[in-house]
Simulated assay, not measured.
Amino acid sequence: MSRIASTARMTIRGISSSSVARQEVVGTVGTAPVKRPVGGFRGGILGFLFGFSASSALSIYYLQQENKIASGLLLASVEELQQGTGKISSHLERLQAVEKELNALKNSGAVKDDVSKVRGEMKKVYDGLHLELLDLRAHVWGVEQDLQKVVKTGK
């Protein structure tokens, strides 16, 4: 109880206008906790680890989003390439079919030499027919002359 009374006296004296040196009362129960400075070594490590963890998590999230976008673009490019390849292969099939038809026409078609030979033969046939026509006209003319002679002479 004497302690409480002395503490009370000090507070009363502290309130009064006299200048009394204040003394700190030290308790006998346990030791006073040691105050560590804020931002000391432990606080710095914890802050660093928290900052590093947060920045790592954000970096991983950002990289995953970039990877997802890049994968989508790559998939779209692959699909576009696949469509282009399909178009090219269909064009190639059509070209091959046209080449086969062209080769068949070349094999069955006439060559310039063949056409020249047929033209020569046709000229020969035409000339032969023309000569036969001229012979026939000459023969008909001769028959007409004979007929006119018979009609004039009456026999």
Rank of each mutant, 00 (worst) to 15 (best):
I12P: 00
A104Q: 08
H91N: 14
A138C: 05
E99I: 03
R94I: 07
K117A: 09
E132G: 02
G109R: 01
K152W: 00
S2Y: 06
E24S: 13
G86S: 15
A110S: 04
G84P: 01
L95F: 05
N103H: 09
Q23R: 15
I60T: 08
L136E: 06
E93G: 11
L131E: 06
R3A: 07
K35T: 13
H91P: 00
G27S: 07
S116H: 07
K123Q: 10
G72N: 10
L102V: 03
D113K: 11
L105V: 04
A97P: 01
V20T: 11
L46N: 11
D114N: 07
L131H: 02
K35H: 09
F48A: 02
S71M: 12
Q145I: 07
E80I: 14
G47K: 13
I45A: 05
S56W: 04
S89V: 14
E99A: 09
L81D: 08
A5L: 09
G120Q: 04
S71N: 14
I69E: 15
I45F: 08
M10T: 06
S17N: 11
M10D: 02
V26H: 04
A110E: 01
L49Y: 03
Q83K: 13
S55W: 05
S53D: 14
Y61A: 15
P33V: 01
T153W: 01
K100C: 00
A57G: 11
S71G: 13
T11K: 06
S19T: 14
F41K: 12
Q65R: 15
S19P: 07
R9F: 00
Y126I: 15
A8Y: 08
S90G: 12
L46T: 05
N107R: 13
G27C: 02
M122Y: 01
S2M: 04
E66G: 15
K35V: 09
K123M: 05
I15L: 15
S2R: 06
G27V: 00
M1T: 05
S17H: 03
M1I: 02
M1A: 15
V143L: 06
G128M: 01
R42I: 02
L49K: 10
R42H: 04
S116V: 10
K117C: 01
R94H: 12
A97F: 07
K35L: 05
L58R: 10
I15A: 10
I12W: 00
R36G: 07
F52S: 15
T31P: 00
R36V: 04
V38W: 11
N67I: 02
L95N: 10
L95M: 08
S18M: 06
L58G: 10
A76D: 12
D114C: 05
G84Y: 03
L92S: 06
E132S: 07
H91Y: 11
V150I: 12
T153Q: 02
R137Q: 12
S90T: 15
